[in-house]
């Protein structure tokens, strides 16, 4: 039972991440390889605000969103001058840079030692410690964020993003500013990831930089590409598929040492097969360019 609750919590966290990334990848059509950056900044900011500044959970999360939004602005402004391959490479560069900072700024992040003993969220005097309680808080945040994102997906802003994605020159010719619209999308995407980061940190109560590596960014992109981008169902399908797949392997009785590599191999193979047979993802409509 606990095992199932744990899975549901992880699915909740990853759904927040992929719905946010969807705005950039699916609507904006930009392959970003630095989503784990904002996930990580969110986790660290929330942790430090709670532990060093003694803020309660909710104010800490709100401030985390703000801080990560500013970081996303700083990263996005230069990165969004690029398209296609160059955008991928530049976001990858930022991913490597931020990881290096998290890893080596020992005074702030304790670097490779990580931060243990992160307090559980306390809201209105009630502490969320058990798994069912945690499930409730994660899914509440998920629903809130999903509602906000769905409204954005459906809004004129979402349509303008899709227009820019399909043909930037024509969309710009209709008065849409790529600089502004992509930047908004990038910042919103980063902000939502930071919430996932805060939830993750307080859930596992220990964080270190290795949770927010390039591999994690690649994984997040894979989740989205497998599920399908540019709509509401894709991120859900992708997350469920990618989180449950390794668990299925465990049930097949594969030893843990092998399972980790076997799981990764399946991810890799899935990506290749997807590009051959369904480049738009399992439940997607829009095909990656």
């Amino acid at each position: 039972m606990n095992y199932i609750l744990h899975l549901l919590i992880m699915i909740g966290i990853y759904m927040i991440l992929s719905y946010g990334l969807n705005l950039v990848v699916g609507f904006g059509g930009l392959l970003s390889l630095c989503h784990a950056v904002f996930y990580g900044i969110g986790a660290y900011a929330c942790t430090l605000l709670m532990m060093k500044c003694g803020l309660p959970f909710l104010p800490a999360i709100l401030l985390t969103i703000l801080i990560t939004g500013i970081c996303a602005l700083i990263v996005g402004f230069p990165a969004l001058r690029f398209r296609g391959d160059s955008f991928v490479i530049v976001t990858l560069g930022f991913q490597m840079i931020v990881f290096t900072v998290l890893y080596n700024w020992v005074d702030l992040t304790r670097g490779p030692y990580g931060i243990p003993g992160i307090p559980r969220p306390v809201i209105a005097g009630y502490e969320f410690t058990t798994l069912p309680e945690y499930l409730i808080i994660v899914w509440t945040f998920l629903i809130l964020i999903a509602v906000v994102l769905f409204i954005i997906y459906k809004s004129p802003f979402g349509l303008a993003l899709k227009a820019l994605r399909d043909n930037e020159m024509a969309a710009e010719g209709l008065g849409k500013s790529p600089v502004h619209l992509f930047l908004y999308a990038f910042v919103i995407s980063g902000m939502t990831a930071s919430v996932a980061g805060g939830l993750y940190a307080t859930y596992v109560t220990y964080i270190d930089p290795t949770s927010f590596t390039l591999d994690e960014s690649i994984f997040l992109l894979t989740v989205l590409l497998v599920g399908g981008t540019g709509n509401r169902i894709g991120p859900f399908v992708g997350t469920v598929f990618m989180i449950l797949l390794p668990e299925a392997l465990r049930f097949l009785g594969m030893p843990d040492a092998v399972a980790a590599n076997a799981r990764q191999m399946i991810y890799g193979l899935t990506l290749i097969l997807l590009m051959f047979f369904r480049p738009q993802g399992i439940a997607g409509k829009y095909m990656v360019r």
């Binding site: 392959l31 391959d85 991928v88 590409l225 990506l271 997807l274 480049p279 360019r289």
Partner: peptide, 8 residues
């Protein structure tokens, strides 16, 4: 597209 090749 180059994106597809990149992901593959």
């Amino acid at each position: 597209s180059t994106g597809v090749l990149f992901i593959a």
